[in-house]
């Protein structure tokens, strides 16, 4: 956790240095006005493609049989404040975005250490070798805070952070076709195969709050219309810190693409 916080702080610092540093120099450059107004309002709609993934993939994951990114929608309303009187090439942008982040994966793991806690405090720790099917369907309210840079009247780039509040959640799935060794790799062994599966639902273990880095670009097709792509990279584990069943951190990494309308 501490490490992640530090990373965020560092990112902010880098961003601030770049931001102010360039502000001063950019004023000295050419004069052509990119934006007519200081505050620009925009609405965007798009789709999210990506997944919740450990980074890098742990060696326990042997094979990914299926990855379905699902169709995830996003809508965003934002305001950008462009600095300067003349050129207005640097700005700061914030807004509010409603978005889905979902996926379904099917993978094979080997000797993957896990601990399952039942609703009544049942506790089984062990190592699983076999198939794991996972389904995630989360909805968030997200607030991005971004520095924006307009290269010219066509291209804009942005970099910053986002903060998300989880409003709807589902993290569930089942294990199948494999075996569990109780307590560790030398423990008692029990086999699951055929239609015998064990289901799990970790929805209630998801963190309410998520944050990360957002980097994006957009291309203005006209004065009002643009197309954009935005990469959001989660920096905190989606699970609560006391949740031990999944031993590696899972972070949402999604590419948000769509089009925007500038008022």
């Amino acid at each position: 956790m501490n490490k992640i916080n530090k990373m965020v702080k560092l990112n902010f610092l880098v961003f601030l240095v770049l931001f102010f540093g360039n502000c001063i120099t950019s004023n000295a450059q050419e004069d052509r006005k990119i934006h007519q107004d200081s505050i620009v309002f925009q609405i965007r709609t798009g789709i999210n493609i990506g997944g919740f993934t450990p980074m890098p993939l742990p060696a326990e994951i042997r094979q990914i049989n299926k990855f379905d990114p699902k169709l995830n929608f996003s809508v965003e309303g934002s305001a950008t404040y462009w600095f300067g009187k003349e050129k207005k090439s640097w700005g700061i942008k914030t807004g509010i975005r409603l978005e889905n982040k979902a996926m379904e994966t099917d993978s094979r793991v080997k000797n993957y250490s896990m601990e399952i806690i039942g609703e009544n405090g049942e506790n089984v720790a062990g190592n699983w070798t076999g198939g794991v099917n996972t389904q995630v369907d989360n909805s968030y309210i997200t607030i991005p805070i971004l520095a924006t840079y307009a290269l010219n009247d066509k291209w804009e780039f942005s970099l910053g952070t986002f903060y998300s509040l989880l409003i709807e959640k589902d993290f569930s799935g089942y294990v199948y076709d494999g075996y569990l060794r109780e307590g560790g790799p030398t423990g008692n062994k029990v086999v699951f195969s055929g239609d015998k599966t064990a289901t799990y639902d970790f929805s209630s273990e998801l963190k309410k709050f998520a944050y990360g880095i957002e980097v994006g670009s957009s291309w203005n097709a006209s004065r009002h219309l643009n197309v954009f792509s935005n990469l959001t990279w989660g920096l905190n584990d989606i699970f609560k810190s006391d949740f031990e069943t999944i031993t590696f951190g899972l972070r949402p990494i999604y590419l948000n693409i769509g089009f925007g309308y500038v008022f």
């Binding site: 890098p56 742990p58 042997r62 000797n111």
Partner: peptide, 8 residues
Amino acid sequence: VSCIKDEL
């Protein structure tokens, strides 16, 4: 970085 690693 998200490639499958060598089997342990």
